[in-house]
């Protein structure tokens, strides 16, 4: 059984060549590109809900998932996206292989390049690592998270989730709450939401807020009730537990008291406001289970579904740009 002819047609009609060779940062995107990507992703959502999810847009292409940091969710999302589009997918976790033997990032890149991949998905703990790799390899590089810098496909999937739940994103007010300082998700979302005409607020204790975050085109709040007052979307960020033992936050209980999202604080947001979280969640620390699991407000499960579709759209359009040049 193959996908319905109509859907295949829709997907082919919406397919476009990505404007850049790499997706490193949301700053590489223009509003029309973003809209085209989301429209394409919408079609992939339909595809993914069918029994037969397989297309051949990436047939013959090789996708390498190069994850220097552990990530179950993002890695499997890219893997599924590649496989559903017909690519050959290889997962590499250099943390446990050559890096342990002392190989540098550039050495790894050169080695990989000799294997002639078409698409390289990279996650690395250091900001700028994806950009460095992009300079050294011949294929398209997708940044799947580099240090505290960016995670552009996360911002795109968040945007798709919002658009599907609330219609247009333009004019919405989105509060991004928690550990903004260490968050690549926050940086990508601020950039993309601003690009698409949403108003952004950043909410968190001053110790988790970058200096001059107010110059990012976002309003900064240290009081959560003030910060989410009247917003359309509350986007929670994950807080690493080791940062909560007095170094940046006194304790988990104090964090939950002032910055954890529970029903009482959520009541400050606009009625009908949606809750998002990039996962994995620390329940009872940054988010109360009652809120996270309330399907009338939580988009958290949708976000995972949108993740696969958005990554299919990114991979397909990057491959469309590659053409047959290789």
């Amino acid at each position: 059984m193959s996908p319905s002819a109509d859907l295949s047609e829709t997907i082919r009609a919406r397919l476009f060549a990505f404007p850049e060779r790499h997706l490193n940062s949301v700053a590489d995107l223009d509003p029309p590109d973003v809209t085209a990507l989301l429209d394409l992703a919408d079609a992939f959502v339909e595809l993914n809900r069918q029994a037969s999810k397989k297309l051949d847009l990436l047939k013959g292409r090789t996708l390498v998932n190069l994850f220097f940091e552990n990530s179950t969710r993002t890695q499997s999302s890219f893997e599924l996206a590649g496989k559903r589009l017909g690519a050959d997918v290889v997962n590499m976790s250099p943390r446990t292989s050559s890096v342990a033997k002392g190989e540098t990032l550039v050495d790894t890149a050169v080695t990989l390049n000799s294997m002639k991949p078409d698409l390289l998905v990279v996650r690395h703990g250091a900001s700028g690592a994806a950009a460095l790799l992009a300079q050294k390899v011949g294929c398209s590089v997708v940044n799947a998270g580099d240090g505290w810098h960016e995670h552009p496909t996360q911002a795109l999937l968040d945007l798709l989730s919002m658009r599907r739940a609330l219609g247009s994103v333009s004019g919405l007010t989105v509060a991004i709450c928690g550990d903004v300082l260490h968050s690549r998700v926050a940086r990508s979302n601020v950039g993309l939401l601003n690009l698409m005409g949403a108003r952004v607020r950043l909410v968190g204790p001053p110790t988790l807020m970058p200096a001059d975050a107010d110059r990012w085109g976002a309003e900064v709040f240290h009081d959560m009730r003030d910060g989410i007052s009247g917003v359309d979307v509350v986007m929670m960020l994950r807080l690493q537990l080791e940062r909560m033992d007095g170094a940046l936050v006194p304790s988990t209980r104090e964090y939950f008291r002032f910055y954890g999202l529970d029903a009482e604080k959520l009541a400050c947001a606009r009625p009908g406001a949606k809750v998002m979280h990039p996962g994995p969640m620390n329940r009872g620390v940054e988010i109360d289970s009652g809120v996270a699991d309330d399907l009338s407000v939580s988009l958290i499960q949708d976000q995972v579904e949108m993740g696969v579709a958005v990554r299919m759209a990114v991979l397909a359009s990057l491959a469309a740009r590659l053409g047959n040049e290789r």
Binding site: D245, G246, A247, L248, P250, S251, R253, E254, R257, F258
Partner: peptide
Amino acid sequence: ATRGLEGQRMAEIGLMDE
């Protein structure tokens, strides 16, 4: 200001303030 007055980790300033 810090736990146990040890100058290492922040005490629960917010909860004590409340």
